[in-house]
Simulated assay, not measured.
Amino acid sequence: MPAGTDKDERRRAMSAFLRSRRERIQPEEVGFAPGGRRRTPGLRREEVAQLAGVGVTWYTWLEQGRDINVSAQVLEAISRTLRLDRLERNHLYTLAGLVLGPAKGDCASLPGSVQKMLDQLSPYPAQVLNSRYDVLAFNDAYCKVIIDIDAIPIEERNLLWLTFASKEWRCAFADSDSIKLHMVAAYRAASADHLGEPSWQDLTGRLLASSPLFAELWERYDVAAPSSKVKVLNNERVGLLRMEAVNLWLSQLGQLRSTVYTPVDEETEAKLRLLVDG
């Protein structure tokens, strides 16, 4: 990869992110008069600069993706001005190349003990994902209840791909719209740590080319973190299943998490056992 490519891509990503956050704030929300002719929605660059206490030219260069130095203090002022939440703020810092916490490791393979743990969780479906939504491990209950991932080629075992582009995706979540929105936002947040990496670029490019919905959600520049929530699955054999998806972080293995689907009522518990144990 040519020198500077990763840094250039980070600046371009930060430029688009700042612009998207600026355009969502209405002038009257921060004390400016709503009148006047505006070429774009939201705040003007000079208004952001004024509120953040930085020079207009400097902020313009920052949003244009120019190669300028930026301090944590200035980013903090911009974060407050743009009303960024914690995840958005962390995303901005990552794009700027400023570290907020310890460096995150990665893991190329999983120890056998992880698979044993997943198998012991049956009849509760469970899987291990990385931040790219690659499925690295799963138990038999996951195949029987969520999707038969074992039947899918290894190179396609990615939840984003299965959700947005693959015809192999057969499970039907009742709240699929909100799930898809959150998945793309979490993927964008994680991608800030992997700008310029071929595997991430390839997945994003294939998703953009294959799914108009992914492309639409990607252009929103929303960021989020994986979260635990109740999901409703319509299984073709037993009907509705109400399960809470709980994330367990495997901290010693880097950016990996195990997602375990646990029933929220006795009816779902009975249906899970019927599906898995027969």
Rank of each mutant, 00 (worst) to 15 (best):
A185Q: 11
M243D: 10
R206M: 10
A270D: 10
S113W: 07
V74M: 15
R12N: 02
A96T: 10
L129Q: 09
C143V: 09
M14W: 04
D67I: 02
Y142R: 00
G31N: 04
N90Q: 13
Q255C: 09
A225M: 14
L136D: 12
L62Q: 10
G31M: 05
Q26L: 10
R39V: 07
Y59F: 10
S113H: 12
E156D: 12
G31V: 02
D6V: 14
P123T: 09
A33W: 02
S15W: 06
N158D: 15
V238L: 03
L195N: 04
D202C: 05
S71G: 09
D67K: 13
G112H: 14
S211H: 08
R37D: 12
L203Q: 07
E219A: 13
V135M: 15
G35L: 03
A49L: 05
Q127C: 08
D140V: 02
K167N: 14
E63S: 09
R257W: 03
N69V: 00
K144I: 06
M14L: 15
L203E: 05
V264K: 07
Y187A: 15
D119R: 05
F138G: 00
F32H: 04
G254S: 01
G65R: 15
L136M: 15
P226M: 14
E269D: 15
V230G: 04
L82S: 11
H91W: 13
K271D: 01
I149M: 05
S131H: 05
Y142K: 00
Y124I: 01
Q64H: 03
